[in-house]
């Protein structure tokens, strides 16, 4: 591991983190077990805080075994659940440590974050990330010690890559009104009851769409997400919209995808490409116009529950991909 891999970010351990750690440690049978639970709890709090400030994730600590007193008492556990992505383990290391041991009895972790404490326990530094796939690749067995300068320890950036690569939005949840991170409902319930002019304003205002927008055609979409596509030196604001519906007596989900010009820009750039891909990357549909359009879309398609697909927006060498499961 090189120094440039380290996050310069220092995560402060506030009083709530310490009070929670103390509450858990107090319930353990021995001082050494209490100490390990105390440090595990602080490590989990620190990684949660890191993901809150970098990815704006608001993770529920109660989802992990690390927040259950019973689980703490039978295992050495510091897990943190990232919805739609997986479970990570936060490994506390002391200021003078030179190696780290991956706990042998833990399963289903996508990776391990190495959390190094300061002596005063007021802050931590995230030293790096160990990808479970990487461990398997090196045929490194769990339980073995890994030196803190070994090649298996990657930058903490690797965790951020994993979070966004592994994120798969569940459309059944969207249908139930639970939208994934970054997604907003198109039309608030209450605005369905207001008249057309007000509704148009209600839509225009938050979405900041161009004046030439036909609002009636937008109303049927379920959710939207702002995308800043970076192309060469310019940043192009786009709105990805998804329309979902289920018809009676058909378990399949009907999906429509549209990319709209947004951020006050009237037209999409020419040659912007919208692609529908299967989970394995196979191209299923592709839309591209040589001229500037107000929006481009993939006509509705029906999917059986459990089917995965990807939507990719491409301009020149830049692209943006979102993954979904029906």
């Amino acid at each position: 591991m090189h120094d440039c891999y380290r996050s310069d970010l220092k995560i402060d351990l506030d009083r709530i983190a310490h009070a929670t750690a103390a509450k858990f440690a107090a319930e353990q049978r021995s001082i050494s077990k209490g100490r390990s639970v105390y440090l595990n709890t602080l490590a989990v709090c620190a990684v949660r805080q890191y993901l809150s400030v970098t990815c704006q994730l608001d993770l529920d600590l109660n989802c992990g075994d690390s927040w259950q007193i019973g689980m703490q008492s039978i295992m050495n556990v510091a897990d943190l659940v990232i919805p739609n992505v997986g479970k990570i383990e936060c490994l506390p290391v002391l200021p003078t440590a030179t190696e780290i041991t991956i706990p042998a009895a833990l399963e289903d972790r996508i990776g391990y974050v190495i959390v190094q404490f300061s002596e005063q326990l007021t802050s931590v530094e995230l030293l790096g990330f160990i990808d479970s796939a990487q461990l398997r690749l090196h045929q490194q067995s769990a339980g073995a010690a890994i030196a803190l300068n070994s090649v298996e320890i990657q930058s903490i950036d690797r965790l951020l890559d994993l979070i966004y690569d592994n994120q798969v939005y569940n459309l059944q949840e969207f249908l139930a009104g639970i939208l994934g991170t970054g997604w907003e409902p198109i039309l608030q319930q209450r605005s369905a009851q207001i008249d057309a002019t007000e509704r148009e304003f209600a839509l225009r205002n938050p979405l900041n769409l161009a004046n030439n927008t036909n609002y009636d055609s937008i109303r049927d979409f379920t959710a939207s997400k702002m995308i800043n596509l970076r192309a060469n030196i310019a940043t192009i604001p786009l709105l990805m919209m998804i329309g979902l519906s289920v018809e009676p007596d058909d378990s399949r989900v009907k999906v429509r995808i549209r990319i709209h010009a947004a951020g006050g820009v009237p037209m999409l750039p020419p040659h912007l490409k919208l692609t529908l891909q299967a989970e394995n990357g196979q191209f299923l549909s592709e839309i591209q116009y040589p001229e500037a359009m107000n929006f481009i879309q993939i006509q509705s398609f029906k999917l059986h529950p459990g089917t995965q697909f990807k939507i990719r927006v491409t301009l020149d060498n830049s692209s943006f991909t979102e993954s979904f499961i029906a």
Partner: peptide, 29 residues
């Protein structure tokens, strides 16, 4: 415990554990 550090941690945990009932851990054991 607000000013806890790595060297004083064990002593503070000992104080906290004396006052807790540690029911779950005891039951499991």
């Amino acid at each position: 415990a607000i000013g806890v550090n790595l060297y004083t941690l064990d002593a503070q945990i000992a104080v906290l554990q004396q006052q807790a009932d540690r029911k779950i851990a005891t039951q499991i054991e």
